[in-house]
């Protein structure tokens, strides 16, 4: 007999098991979600960006508010967007101090990680100048002037190194 005090925990455990088993019953792997090349997207007047090649459109108002404390700060500017093989979206842009890692979930992009890629400055903002994202499995490479090269994963910075190309 199940005691009332224990019921919620047991119910949650059963639901989790059911959910996990339904996912585990059919898995298509390996799956590569990676884009070969980043999208360089201009933020529209309605605060959205569109990647026509990959048919992805989303609002960046919340992203602007998070990075610049101003939801309209990104209008007219460009963003760099790249999806890694695991399916996470890496987003950054000029003046950004972070690279944002999002996961798609139920018609939204949910923040997985906010990676600081520039040193914190006490006086003023020291953002990226002209960033670019490259696909370098298993990493995403962040390049910026002058000579900045970081290898990123969904969890953070994997490696700092000097800049060298290698996209062949």
């Amino acid at each position: 007999m199940i005691r009332l005090r224990e019921f919620p925990l047991q119910a949650i455990a059963v639901l989790l098991a059911a959910g996990l088993s339904s996912c585990a019953s059919l898995r298509l792997e390996p799956t590569d979600f990676g884009w070969p090349v980043e999208g360089v997207l201009t933020v529209s007047a309605s605060n959205t960006v569109e990647e026509p090649r990959q048919s992805v459109t989303f609002s960046v108002a919340a992203l602007a508010a998070e990075e610049f404390q101003d939801s309209s700060a990104l209008k007219g500017s460009t963003l760099r967007l790249l999806r890694n093989p695991e399916g996470y979206f890496f987003i950054t842009g000029p003046r950004f101090e972070h690279v944002y890692v999002f996961a798609p979930s139920g018609g939204a992009l949910c923040l997985e990680e906010k990676i600081r890629v520039t040193p914190e400055q006490e006086n003023g903002r020291q953002g990226l100048r002209n960033p670019a994202l490259n696909q370098r499995p298993p990493y995403v490479e962040l390049l910026d002037e002058p000579g900045v090269r970081l290898l990123l994963t969904r969890d953070g910075i994997a490696e700092h190194s000097s800049a060298k190309g290698g996209n062949n």
């Binding site: 980043e38 760099r80 670019a132 490259n134 910026d144 000579g147 000097s162 800049a163 190309g165 996209n167």
Partner: peptide
């Protein structure tokens, strides 16, 4: 060339 940072987007 050796030290240039190459963005894939720029290459394309």
């Amino acid at each position: 060339l050796a030290t240039a940072q190459e963005s894939d987007f720029e290459v394309k």
